[in-house]
Design a protein around this nucleic acid. Sequence first.
DNA 1: GCCGGGCTAATTTTT
DNA 2: TTAGCCCGGC
Length: 781
Amino acid sequence: MSASHAPVPLYAFAMPDLLANLNPEQYAAVTLPDESALIVAGAGSGKTRVLTTRIAWLIEGGRVSPSGILAVTFTNKAAREMMTRLGAMLPINTRGMWIGTFHGLCNRLLRAHHRDAGLPSAFQILDSADQLSAIKRLLKANNIDDEKYPPKNLQYFINGAKEEGLRASRVDANDAFNRRFVELYAMYESQCEREGVVDFAELLLRSYELLDSNRALRAHYQQRFSHILVDEFQDTNRLQYAWLKLLAGEHSAIFAVGDDDQSIYAFRGANVGNMLDFEREFAVRHRIKLEQNYRSHGNILDTANHLISRNSRRLGKDLRTDAGAGEPVRVYEAATDQQEANWIVDEIRALLDQGMSRSEIAILYRSNAQSRVVEHALVAAGVPYKVYGGLRFFERQEVKHALAYLRLIDNPDDDTAFLRVVNFPTRGIGARSLELLSDTARLHQCSLAAAAPLLTGKAGAAVASFMRLIEQVRAETAPLNLPETVEHLLAASGLNTYYEQEREGQERLENLQELVNAAAAFAAEEGYGRDVPARSLPMAPGASAAPALTDDSDAVEVIDAGAPLVRQMTPLAGFLSHASLEAGDNQAQAGQDAVQLMTVHAAKGLEFMAVFISGLEEGLFPHENSAVEIDGLEEERRLMYVAITRARERLYLSFAQSRMLHGQTRYNVRSRFFDELPADTLKWLTPRIEAGARWGGARDNAGWGRDWFAPPSHIETALADKQRAADTGYRTGQTVFHNKFGEGTIIGLEGSGTDARAHVSFQRHGAKWLSLAVAKLQIVD
DNA sequence: GCCGGGCTAATTTTT
DNA sequence: TTAGCCCGGC
């Protein structure tokens, strides 16, 4: 019998320990009754601690068994952290618990119920790059002009639609261009279906639909997960919110933790509004604010509080600290970006001399391109540094090649994988042969692998020999465990030989060997014995195939009584999922103790003793593109807020009068954020010159962006006429022209009057929400 | 099939 | 400025 039916207190006597050292707000949050609650957790307020302690407290008090918990995060790192901390608090095995990322948990769900979800048992996950190449292939196969329908945009469009919960059949299409997009979306869906692959958004949407359409399954999970805990709630998109709501049902309690002031991912679909929707729709009675900050000194917090108070529509929050005021926030104005970089390096050297370690120092910037100057200065000064945001392990080409072979072994219909390695290493299968093959496949509506035997002639022979290779590797690896399978494949595929002969192949070879290690580590971590073949399900017969859950309640029991659901995956399928869902470390160089360089976005969730925020110039930070985005300036301000609150003791702000950008010297004005910071926490190292004095005339905050992107007057006039003509004058499906982003299609409209917004899918810039009052959109007929 | 020149575009990013 | 992509030539 599963533990879920008999929750038993584990260590009742340990409870005081668990709750010791919590401040009153934290305590209140952790010990809330069994109903939905919103925890507004400020930066550095012990958010993760509250989340994990809440879980521990629920389990310990016998309110729920570990299997009744579902805890969801956005990143694998956060999920791991939660499991580690929980494991330290309670003597339980956290591995079997449903703690993971949205995508990871959805993957688990779909593996367990792949049949009900309409997926093959060995379905594979496309990462963004795979998805893009699948889309390119789709366009090519159907002779579609990729100038007119850029693959990137189609990808954006498809993912955007999925994240709104919309299948192609339900997307609005009013003009020919838009209809074509929807049509391509539908074709993409059937291509994925045929190949047995799902993209990231599909994991979410598919599992949402699975629960939505299958009453028994839904009831089962709703009942099972009586407590759902969500981290970084402000980052959830609409589909994730809907998914949570569906899973919670009528009776489960959602413990949502988030910070509206740290919402910086609107551009990828995050909807802060989910916080208020949640309060309303779940009749939340408890909103608890965690405002006690354990990270930063007073001056730093005051600076952050003051800045963010400028934002409207906040839930409202002021961070406080028991630490003293500490050092003032130092501000430096440089003549050039190079001088700015040199100053930063000088200050860093002073900090290092004082004994601060390099890894406690971070240099933050708004966009990646800004790292170059700083890197130069660091190299010149001989200061070791680490840049975050490079290629990750599973994204390296040699690793992707190897994974493609593994995928083919598991699922030969995976055309993305097929095309990636059919001629790598080269085996004389050129573009001509592949064209023939893909024509054949299209004709028979089948995968490339399935079409291979139908191909005749020289091309047919070459492809057949490749298929024999795959077949042979498949047979040879049947008895092998996961790392052995990878090892064998590296040899049999010719990848090893290829990189051995390659002049600069040494590092790639090492990465391939590292892949074997990663496979071994994965197998060990998941508890697969060395004798478990990579493509077998180590379960009792009968339970190996996930029972199809229909409206038969007996079948539901089988799942609960069986082994953990993760075992519904073979080691290989699990490893491939792992590779797609967790691309690995995001750091370029490995260096031991190094100064940390990253974008502000990448710094979210981290903290450092000393933080430098560089490039604080109008157009850069706040970024000029944000000017035309809905609430763009407020999001930039939140971004600045996140940046400031990363610092524990030292905070340095800097900007440069001129900066090399896009090969040209740009002359910038200091960021408006300086005018929004409190004067008494700042210490100007260079003379502070009042805004406007240098450039003549005050800046117009209200018209953020208006001057910069004013379209030609004839467009403005035409637009004004149309706006006067009827309401906003826009409708979805219309093709519009934007002065900066070019042509796009309106895929959604919201609000009215000055608040009216349009969701526009641009051909070259992706989908953006634009304020109709600010952005000038010309209707193209 | 590979190399290199020319063209283009250049926020932020996890899964 | 520079990185990535495409196309043309060998």
